[in-house]
């Protein structure tokens, strides 16, 4: 029997190693997806078709707040993984919950930004610029939504089963995903918002 347990454990360990690499590769493919959307935005951002340009609609202090919130959530996610690795269930739980709250606030801010643009008649079908803007930022928001859902499932697992080994591995993948979304946001913040408000 111990023979079996050893074989299954070894299998699980190599599987986790594969999953870590596979998930990283998935993130690389997602980067290419975002790159395509960035390229489209870069090509179309001048095509305002009589509508507003970036500098007319961007509220930079608001976006800075969004950026700092997301950055902080990336940090708290890191803390959650450290605490979980230490076996400190309570702390891990708290930091993960903090990440969720920060991520959720970010998402709400993004939705409110979108909402106010649409109410002002500057929805995604207004011009090519706005189409590409909404799609690029919205795709990021969609990823954030998936991440939040994942955090919820994770929180529920921690609550129900404690820090199981397999869940720690899943948490490390979730953390990777969350950091990646932060990296994408740096470029949205820089290319869409900062550069957009320059010209």
């Amino acid at each position: 029997m111990s023979d079996l347990i050893r074989v299954v454990d070894a299998e699980q360990a190599t599987r986790n190693e594969r999953k870590a690499l596979g998930f990283w590769i998935y993130i690389m493919t997602d980067c290419v997806l975002f790159a395509t959307l960035f390229a489209t935005y870069a090509v179309l951002h001048g095509n305002v078709f009589g509508g507003p340009a970036g500098k007319d609609i961007f509220n930079l202090p608001f976006v800075l707040a969004e950026t700092l919130i997301l950055l902080t959530s990336s940090f708290t996610m890191g803390l959650a993984t450290i605490m979980a690795a230490k076996g400190n269930r309570h702390q891990a739980y708290t930091w993960l919950a903090a990440t969720f709250i920060l991520g959720f606030s970010f998402l709400m801010m993004e939705i409110s930004e979108f909402g106010s643009l649409i109410i002002d008649g500057n929805g995604p079908s207004r011009s090519a610029f706005l189409s590409s803007f909404f799609t690029l930022v919205g795709t990021h928001g969609l990823h954030i939504t998936v991440g939040l859902l994942w955090i919820l499932v994770m929180l529920w697992r921690f609550y129900k089963h404690g820090l199981k080994k397999q869940d720690l591995h899943r948490l490390s993948l979730l953390a990777l995903f969350w950091h990646f979304l932060d990296v994408i946001w740096i470029f949205i913040f820089t290319i869409v918002y900062l550069m957009g408000s320059l010209s």
């Binding site: 493919t29 997806l33 078709f49 995604p124 079908s125 189409s131």
Partner: peptide
């Protein structure tokens, strides 16, 4: 991923009236 994004934008144009590749709207 490039195909996924491109088809996604084409269908956004068809479903939500966005303007990526249309003749109008920039």
């Amino acid at each position: 991923p490039i195909l996924t994004a491109t088809l996604g934008m084409l269908s956004l144009g068809r479903l939500l009236g966005m303007h990526f590749f249309t003749a109008g709207g920039g």
